[in-house]
């Protein structure tokens, strides 16, 4: 069981959080093609290694935030607010 750092509440057990999957996925408008829309909905990098994803401290403050986490080691690499662009080097 991981421990994740909520930017507002500090470090808490994984069971307080909900993972929302990869972050920084840009939502296309209604004029998107079927291919663009399908890519947005379903296609993901799914790397074995560092992944930028979003989590919600669902059983805490309720806030979403971004997290960079290694999907192989589960090590947390960085945390940053929802509205911010990804940190360099990720």
């Amino acid at each position: 069981m991981m421990q994740l750092p909520c930017p507002w509440c500090g470090v808490r057990d994984e069971s307080e959080f909900v993972c929302g999957g990869a972050s920084h996925i840009v939502r296309p408008g209604l004029s998107a093609s079927d291919a663009e829309w399908g890519s947005y909905l379903f296609f993901r990098d799914n790397p074995k290694g560092p992944l930028r994803e979003r989590w919600r401290h669902a059983y805490g403050c309720g806030q979403w935030f971004n997290l960079m986490r290694d999907t192989l080691t589960h090590q947390v690499l960085s945390v940053y607010p929802m509205a911010e662009p990804p940190p360099a080097g990720g």
Binding site: A58, W64, M82
Partner: peptide, 13 residues
């Protein structure tokens, strides 16, 4: 409620 929050915080902040 969770979906509303996700849209609000992540897509329409």
């Amino acid at each position: 409620a969770a979906a509303f929050e996700e849209w609000l915080q992540c897509e329409y902040p």
